[in-house]
Amino acid sequence: MTERAIPWPMMALAVVGFAYMLLPIFVVVLAGLTAGEFLTFPPEGLSLRWVAAFLQSEKYLSAFFFSFRLALMTMVVATILGTAAALFLARSDVVGKAALRAFFLSPVVLPGVVVGFALFAFFIYSGMGLSRTIWGLWIGHILYSTPYVIGTVGAALAAYDDSLEEAARSLGASPWRAFRKVTLPNISQGIQAGSIFAFIVSFGQFEVSLFLSAPNAEPLPIAMYNSLRYQFDPSAAAAGIFAITLVIASVLLTNRLVNIRRLLERQQGQ
């Protein structure tokens, strides 16, 4: 198979686009490895002192692991809710479906600060005891992350041929079995992508957390912001290195798991 030639202007644009996206990561990594006293770029020499400072900081480590747990919990719920919502939007004939779709996606469209403050005010008004608690923060993160799952699963469903499931049903499969054995494997890529998005969005969420975070339970972005506000030392960038590493690792791990599963499926098929 011969590769199609890509026009050089497109190639140049792609290179610029990749560089544009990767530049902040490059800056964060180098800034976190500086030997200097402040968070600056270019770094003043290279050193692991701020990485060590991050690893020795009880505040940063607890924030990192809290964000990790929060993102995992958010990912699980957002994936279930988002997948269900995407299925509903794709398959129901309810009146005002377009408006409903826009409604489901609205948390992403609204500024995070607005969503965070609106939830904060609602929690206080409702008297449910959720204001400035971990559960309230979790709800906020789910609300903000679920639209990403709806978007990716919705795209997977749009590309999915419904007649496959109909065929399974006509051959005697129950609705649940047809969904589990036919539809779910076909849209699994979209679900996986959505869940990764949900995890990443939750892990890096700042604006919603600003109003909803609970005392003594600071997510990593808030801890980094506080560090920049009161110290401006490069430990925030060092924390950023670990955050980037975690996100990349989660993406790679997911890809790896998907590939292993495919391999197993192929072996079973042989």
Partner: peptide, 12 residues
């Protein structure tokens, strides 16, 4: 006791 205070190195 609920307190509002600065974070980061100040808090530590």
């Amino acid at each position: 006791l609920n307190i509002g205070e600065w974070g980061g190195g100040w808090e530590e």
